[in-house]
Amino acid sequence: MTAEPSHCASLPEGHVTHTRARNVKERLIETALFLAAFSAVATTVAIVAILLYEGWSFFQHVSLVEFLTHTQWTPLFEKAEYGVLPLIAGTFTISAIAVLVAIPLGLMVAIYLSEFASHRVRETVKPFLELLEGVPTIVYGYFALLFVTPLLQKIIPGLPGFNMLSPGIVIGIMITPYVASVSEDAMRAVPMAMREASYAMGATRFQTAMKVVLPAAISGVVAAFILGISRAVGETMVVAIAAGQQPNFTFDPREHAATITAYIVQVAMGDLPHGSIGYQSIFAVGLVLVVITLFFNVIGQYVRRRWREAY
């Protein structure tokens, strides 16, 4: 035992240089990781800075009051109007439909996979969900326009070719796998001891899932909902293709409409000259979008923290 201290001294000469080489290597890795993290932060800051800068130019020409209260969005007209409400209404209506589809559906899939499916079924279905998450959104856009809209037209007579219902439903289907897999992760993280306690009281699987597992996983499940909502709000291609790209101040899902993101692509790919007010307007609505998503993310963080360590 007393020989222990001399153990170090008896190490070969090379040991010291090894340590130095390792230290240099560690420093390099640390610096690289820091730069990677820094670039993510810098990009975010840069995006917000550009939005603020260009948005500022926009608000030199259009008053904030007009922007927030007028109900016409007609930047391409002779007498252009810049009331953002129609775009917000479109975004809200389509997102609400999407959420009404995705939350119940995603939750059902999550409960099934986490509490009912056998190991084999789960291992088969999970990769499919991940695959669905990876399908390019433009595919969903054409799915909405060419398949869901004609189907809905058979059910709802007189439904126009461009409407908010079809893209809303399709976005809902699109984010369902995401909501399902994040919720399922949260439910699977509930300790087995909770389930055993419930089963030992004579509960069925369904009772255990609804009364014990879901409440215990609620913070993760709600976070999944909110991230899903953020994705619905930010979704672009499906809406641009299937909703008609015409701003329309209405909450009626049968009507055509445009959303904030659909308007941004339209202008960014279109004919408005750089520096014009119309061009700057996309930065103003971009700011609105950032604020909305930020709002949902803050709520998500709050919910997560509020219910953390529930079990």
């Binding site: 300790p191 001891a193 909770m194 055993e196 306690a197 419930s198 030992a200 009281m201 004579g202 509960a203 069925t204 009772q207 009364k211 014990v212 409440p215 215990a216 529930a310 079990y311």
Partner: peptide, 26 residues
């Protein structure tokens, strides 16, 4: 036949709801 486990495993519910669990399940 009821069971109590090695590690206490109350539900993240109120004291009342914990005890009432078996009754509501029935």
């Amino acid at each position: 036949v009821a069971m109590v486990f090695q590690k206490p495993n109350p539900f993240p519910k109120s004291i009342f709801d914990n005890v009432a669990y078996g009754l509501t399940v029935r």
